[in-house]
């Protein structure tokens, strides 16, 4: 209904990231919001459900083609992915395919092709929903988010990003520029499993992202992120500690279940039930560890 209000919005484009930071800062100082329009796959859907506007609509800035938010590069041990990178670009990137294949796998499970062609990692991180697949995948890689504002640039570790349901430590005037992650050695095991109500066009009921480096039957690196089992993306601290603490073959199913139960607090909502999510959280974690060599 209120889509008719789209007529009232203004949209600009800024020549550079610094100029964008300045615009956002200036409006922020006046208490005005700025919408950064990347793929719009989150924002436009929100408009559809929103009541008609009362006040002057916020300014929209089209960041879809801002060069400084784009590009994928590998420098030494750091893979940097621009915030404006779409899921389709992840899928098509040779570097990502080789060094962070789990991101490719995750991207293929986002919506369907049309959403993958438009949705960006930056938008996914900005919305910071516990149901966000990209956020969970980046949590598993223990990525770092590069944000910038008129006050300067800083880095936020994934572990510090979310503070509550769709709440994050990123300030309102901070623009997500890129994510950086240290890719595991090529050929390292990874895991992505999404459980949704259908095979495409589905928001995760539960999804599990995992990356690991295994040496002599023990995980020396282990990162996971789980979708839709807590108010924030679940980083599974207890499970991580369990797995890094002993040989994979010695981990029992009971230990896994117990750890997972500590790490998740799923609820009933329109997409699934808390009980089901708990069950699937345990089952997927066992499946992941089974693939790493646990005898469960």
């Amino acid at each position: 209904m209120s889509l008719a209000d789209l007529h009232f919005f203004k949209m600009t484009r800024e020549p550079s990231l610094d100029a964008l930071c300045a615009v956002v800062a200036e409006r922020h100082a006046q208490g005005l919001a700025t919408i950064l329009y990347a793929g719009g796959t989150d924002w436009m859907v929100e408009q559809e459900m929103r009541a008609p506007l009362h006040d002057e609509p916020p300014l929209v800035v089209d960041i879809g083609r801002m060069g400084e938010l784009r590009g994928i590069s590998l420098a030494g041990d750091s893979l940097r992915i621009g915030a404006g990178t779409t899921y389709l670009e992840l899928e098509r990137s040779a570097v990502v395919q080789a060094r962070a294949p789990m991101l490719v796998r995750m991207a293929k499970d986002v919506g369907a092709v049309q959403i993958q062609a438009r949705g960006t990692l930056g938008g996914n991180l900005a919305t910071a929903s516990p149901a966000a697949d990209g956020v969970a995948a980046l949590a598993a890689y223990d990525a770092t988010i590069v944000v910038k504002s008129a006050r300067g640039e800083r880095r936020i570790a994934m572990a510090d990003l979310q503070t509550g349901y769709k709440k994050s430590t990123r300030a309102a005037d901070e623009i997500i520029v890129a994510v950086e992650l240290a890719p595991p050695p090529e050929g390292s095991p990874w895991y992505w499993r999404k459980v949704g109500a259908r095979r495409a066009q589905a928001i995760s009921k539960v999804a599990l992202a995992g990356v690991a480096v295994v040496e002599n039957g023990t995980a020396t690196r282990f990162g996971v992120g789980m979708v839709s089992v807590a108010p924030v993306t679940a980083r599974m601290a207890t499970t991580r500690a369990l797995v890094l603490g002993k040989a994979l073959a010695e981990i029992t199913a009971e230990e896994i279940d117990h750890a997972v139960d500590q790490d998740v607090t799923p609820i009933d909502d329109v997409r699934s039930t808390g009980e089901y999510r708990s069950h699937v959280a345990r089952a997927l974690t066992r499946d992941l560890l089974r693939q790493l060599g646990a005898r469960v």
């Binding site: 329009y37 796959t41 436009m44 092709v113 049309q114 959403i115 062609a117 438009r118 066009q201």
Partner: peptide, 25 residues
């Protein structure tokens, strides 16, 4: 809202949902 795909068009060769793309872009 990007679910049904009946609004699909090609934008620079890739399929997108025209209901989620602002004309300004």
């Amino acid at each position: 809202e990007g679910e049904c795909g009946s609004c699909t068009v090609l934008l620079d060769g890739d399929p997108v949902n025209a209901c989620l793309v602002p004309i300004g872009q």
